[in-house]
Design a protein around this nucleic acid. Structure first.
Lengths: 162, 162
DNA sequence: GAGAGACTACTCGGATACAGTCTGTCCGAGTAAATCCGG
DNA sequence: CCGGATTTACTCGGACAGACTGTATCCGAGTAGTCTCTC
């Protein structure tokens, strides 16, 4: 079990979009160039994020993406689920029902005990992601990225933001 | 991202093995039949568990598997990692290094902030799994499974345990 | 009847095909900007 | 010079191949139990 690399891409791209001035858009081409990624494929990751209504798009020259909500209202979980889907990581096929010692039409009152534990772990994972907002990430980056690189990147992005 | 069905199978099989009397073995064939699973493929899941030294095997007639340790010393995480591997679910490709505004030989002091959050979530997931022991599962099942089915299953298994 | 040897049947383990998803790429529909032309 | 229609160039979005992991299956090496033969 391993997450798609698109998750990483989407998170980084959203971090960039979070720093964009109000009303400006940034194109897939710019985002791909900035991160050294294949433009066409990155596009698919952004599509997912777009379909989840986390970002808005505009077409034509100087078109691209921008956040649909303030960065403080977008969590890691939102982005991860946009790319990976909201389905649980563990699916219970209820194999206990095949137990040859059970009556034919026997109906369980509770979900499988194994599944409950796995789902609980899944929830712990999601809760952690839910607890980190995009604004937190930007704040952290602001503290850790050397000021000159931070400033240079901002201007690099701004130059290409339509 | 979704876990293999082998994880579910391995967990259920270990639960059965946990109820086995001291020194007895149970074969793949019996485990497959009990859970209604393809014998040959289930064998691969048990192989993984075996290679992780969670169970011991014996060949020949009345051979099979048994736990290598008491159920109280085997956690969900042990079994999940045996099947899925110990690698983290999120891999950081350090795409921030492709930032065109960075000096060529720039070296980061900390791991990527995005990766840190994802790894933290991964740890939360693992910690939950680490906190549940196989003996806990058996105990829960003992409380929830109707007594007659519980007893019937035990005898069914015992009849095939060599 | 007892013991040793050979045999048998059953086990696990690795090597081998098939399928589905992730990765990567391409092209078309649509739009905002830029251009051009007429007034 | 200004306004509007046209052209243009650039965007996103979905449709299309290739690679890799997960799924499913098969067969062989090895062993514990069983049977047989001899003493």
């Amino acid at each position: 079990m391993i997450l798609k690399s698109q998750v990483e891409w989407a998170l980084h791209c959203c971090a960039i979009l979070a720093g964009l001035p109000e009303g400006r858009y940034l194109s897939t081409k710019a985002l791909a160039e900035f991160h050294g990624l294949p433009k066409e494929y990155l596009s698919k990751a952004l599509q997912s994020v777009s379909q989840a209504s986390l970002v808005e798009t505009t077409l034509g020259p100087s078109g691209g993406y921008r956040l649909a909500r303030p960065p403080s209202e977008i969590t890691f979980l939102d982005i991860v689920e946009a790319v990976e889907g909201k389905a649980r990581t563990f699916t219970c096929n209820n194999i206990r029902a095949n137990n040859p010692c059970r009556p034919a039409g026997f109906c369980d009152t509770k979900p499988c005990a194994v599944a409950r534990v796995m789902w609980q772990a899944d929830e712990a994972w999601r809760n952690t992601l839910r607890g980190v907002r995009l604004s937190d990430l930007v704040e952290t980056l602001g503290e850790e990225v050397p000021p000159d690189i931070w400033k240079g990147s901002y201007e690099w992005v701004l130059k290409r933001a339509g």
